[in-house]
């Protein structure tokens, strides 16, 4: 059957609300408005105000309330409308959700799921085009999921809700209308492991989230030109499934990482460093990165396009690496 990324997210939240009385959705405009991206449209009518809680514009406050509710025995799904506003909630996410288990000597954990829309590419300019997932993956205590496929949009939430730790899900805005053919009977697979989406021999391309469809596209273009590229969907940035990356690079001996975050201090840098530390002598060429250019995202379409890795950029980078 065909399903869109938005329908998949919608399905997953609806299932969670139906199956677990402890689950509720809280966030800005999740109710009467139907969700800023229409993910929770009509949920208020179906589940009522106790389950679908429209919050005032108080990101720090309602994130803290969600954390407290989780401590009190509920399973909140906190929706932060976009990743950009998550900066207002960072204190609660990091200083409390992430650290509480450790600070309390393992007594408390915070079983919250925090969902947010991430990424650029829609001419929304600097303040609405961030990609903070790599940055948040710096922090021990949280788990970071980055669904890049419809199937992951459909099943990651369920795994996140079963996890006793705080799980942050970064849903890419450009993927919402992305439609894929999915197997109706498939029940999902643990989101904490990377997945080889395409096997290949000459180079490993590791990426996640919004960069995934364009990476896939680049790989097909190159395939038609006779190149064999292995594509890894990281899926989860923390804990990072390092083993899958190393295994692939040991086979292909070349690695390109495509990451929507800025290059300096990026998540791509982390992967590159680990590969160098662990399997330097397996490499036939230096690890390369394609990242967001070092500029706040501009409004003008051609400038924004130039700031974020595009299919063409991935194709030429790989060609350069295989030359």
């Amino acid at each position: 059957m065909k399903m869109s990324y938005r329908e998949a997210l919608r399905w997953s939240i609806r299932e969670a609300l139906k199956n677990d009385s402890r689950v509720f959705l809280v966030g800005e405009d999740v109710g009467a408005y139907g969700g800023s991206y229409a993910v929770s449209k009509d949920f208020l009518k179906e589940f009522g105000q106790e389950k679908i809680l429209d919050a005032p514009l108080s990101e720090l406050g309602f994130t803290g309330i969600g954390i407290g509710a989780a401590l009190g025995g509920l399973r909140p799904i906190i929706e932060i409308m976009t990743v950009n506003f998550s900066l207002l909630a960072l204190d609660q996410i990091i200083n409390s959700a992430a650290f509480l288990c450790h600070m309390s000597g393992g007594q408390f954990s915070v079983p919250v799921v925090i969902r947010m829309t991430t990424g650029g590419g829609r001419q929304l300019a600097a303040q609405h085009s961030n990609s903070w997932e790599g940055w948040l993956a710096h922090v021990p205590g949280v788990k970071i999921l980055t669904p890049g496929t419809v199937i992951d949009a459909k099943f990651m939430l369920q795994y996140a809700l079963e996890d006793p730790n705080p799980v942050l899900i970064f849903e890419h805005a450009l993927l919402l209308n992305h439609v894929q053919e999915i197997d109706e009977n498939f029940q999902g697979t643990s989101p904490f492991k990377a997945m080889v989406l395409k096997e290949g021999r000459s180079l490993t391309l590791a990426t996640y989230g919004g960069m995934l469809p364009r990476s896939l596209e680049a790989v097909s273009i190159l395939e038609q030109k006779g190149k064999s590229i292995e594509l890894i969907d990281l899926r989860c940035l923390r804990p990072l499934d390092e083993e899958s990356i190393l295994t692939s690079v040991k086979k292909t001996h070349r690695l390109l990482i495509v990451d929507e975050g800025w290059r300096s201090g990026s998540f791509a840098a982390e992967i590159s460093a680990r590969v160098m530390e662990k399997i330097f002598y397996e490499l036939d060429a230096p690890v390369q990165r394609l990242c967001r250019r070092e500029v706040p995202i501009p409004y003008a379409a051609q400038l924004e396009r130039a700031a974020i890795p595009q299919t063409d950029d991935i194709v030429s980078k790989i060609q350069e690496m295989l030359r």
């Binding site: 402890r22 509720f24 106790e50 720090l60 406050g61 309602f62 994130t63 803290g64 309330i65 969600g66 954390i67 407290g68 509710a69 989780a70 401590l71 009190g72 025995g73 509920l74 909140p76 204190d91 609660q92 200083n95 409390s96 509480l100 600070m103 309390s104 408390f108």
Partner: peptide, 25 residues
């Protein structure tokens, strides 16, 4: 006893959440 918060005011929303959970449950 839920802490023990060393970021000023950070326990306040969490207490609201704890009370909300008790109310809902």
């Amino acid at each position: 006893f839920f802490g023990g918060n060393a970021i000023v005011a950070s326990g306040i929303p969490q207490a609201v959440g704890l009370a909300l959970a008790a109310q809902r449950l």
